[in-house]
Design a protein around this nucleic acid. Structure first.
Lengths: 232, 232
DNA sequence: AGGGGATGTTGACAGCTGTCAACAGAGGTC
DNA sequence: GACCTCTGTTGACAGCTGTCAACATCCCCT
């Protein structure tokens, strides 16, 4: 197989009725299965893709098997960026997902909306670098929960602000690879948060935030905003 | 001062004759001093800038003082990207630097060359995330040396391939903030590499690579390139 | 030339997080 | 329904890296 391509789900799963579905249904979107590798780092790919619904992660591998998840994408996010026609990262689905191809990656990079998405992604990467380099294990795990809660927030059926319950698409191993930790450390942090009443989960992936304020406090200090002050 | 602006060097230092100077001299470029903060994270800024010569670092702060250097820029690299008109990162000079303003940041983001630079930067950020999350202290320091050697390589005056000697613009503290380590760990790694004959330095910032192959081996495994292989 | 602060080095020690191991539980297959 | 594998949890322990401290060195400034 000379090119890395978007793979359609073997058994075409019915699109989940999701509250995150955008108002205008995508015409050319495809539904792909769970745990599929859509793009390989270093592989060729000329298109850009939008996550319409579901969860996609980007990752890089060291050749001894160490893995780093570099980004977790929810609805609306783009992926498939290339340098010299080669994919920057491997892209995998962590859920059944709806993916919309946007056509030529290079052409699209000059589209204002895509350029804006690129800058937003760059900002996210820098924030995550700060997490990886400068936060403790507890802060990392708490930060991840805060972020994933925002991403996969379940809105109430009345469109209300939503309960603080969400589906954790990532396994403990995925969380570890995202946060630069080990599975054991992630598990210990989550269960400590549970004992301390910050969160609750009966099923490992069904998360519920019980105390948003303390969780955010545990997530560590927010990024410093120098604002408009200037040092001479 | 309502806006964060490029600050001109107080005593306009003469531009260092540098071999990295591009063939076409920039017309509107300015020379700025060492250890100046050019842009503040969260500050307003409408222009994009190119590093013509010198060394600029981008960083983020947590409000308890922890710092993460997210990128080290050498000649040719762009900075000043914004999201919602706010700077993504703080930009500081680590050397006397020549900086060239490129005009409106948002307009430029749709320029093909700038879009390409954005994607390259995104790739660099992902590679660095893998370093931060998945490499050991020794691998991190060795990786940094390999990268900085490429960035600030001194070419011989005859344009020859260059001795493996370069100026480390970063202090030990900067290296630590870049690699997610402490000053002490960075210092210990560097001096161990020195004892083991991988590198040499008499002055803390005058680095010389004695054994490039072993240094690169110490830098850890290269990123895995899945190439065009596809897993069914 | 003489301070004096910033930067860099080194040692002792602690503790956070990784490693190894055993086990529990969930989910999938036949 | 009975395996069987993957995932998650928990404990014991080790070791890498951070913390604290002292000191050396460099560089700037007067």
């Amino acid at each position: 197989m000379p090119e890395t391509l978007i793979t359609t789900a073997a058994p075409a799963a019915p699109p989940r009725a999701s509250p995150m579905r955008p108002p205008r249904p995508a015409i050319s979107s495809r539904v792909v299965g769970e745990n599929l590798t859509l793009l390989y780092e270093g592989g060729r790919n000329r298109s850009l893709y939008r996550v319409v619904d579901g969860c996609v992660v980007l990752s890089q591998l060291l050749d001894d098997g160490r893995r780093q998840i570099t980004d977790v994408l929810g609805p609306g996010r783009l992926f498939g960026f290339t340098v010299d026609g080669r994919n920057i990262a491997t892209a995998e689905t962590l859920s059944i997902a709806r993916i919309e191809p946007l056509g030529d990656a290079d052409l699209n990079a000059t589209n204002p909306a895509v350029a804006s998405e690129l800058k937003t992604t760059l900002q996210r990467m820098q924030v995550h670098a700060t997490l990886l380099g400068r936060k403790t294990a507890s802060e990392k795990v708490a930060s991840a929960l805060v972020e994933l809660a925002r991403l996969f927030n379940r809105t109430g059926r009345n469109g209300a602000p939503a309960r603080l319950s969400f589906h954790l698409h990532l396994t403990r191993a995925d969380l570890a690879d995202w946060l630069g930790l080990t599975v054991e450390t992630v598990s210990r942090c989550l269960n400590r948060f549970k004992r301390e009443g910050l969160i609750d989960f009966s099923h490992p992936k069904t998360m519920r935030v019980l105390d948003p304020e303390r969780l955010e406090a545990t997530a560590g200090f927010t990024r410093h905003r120098a604002g408009d002050a200037a040092r001479p």
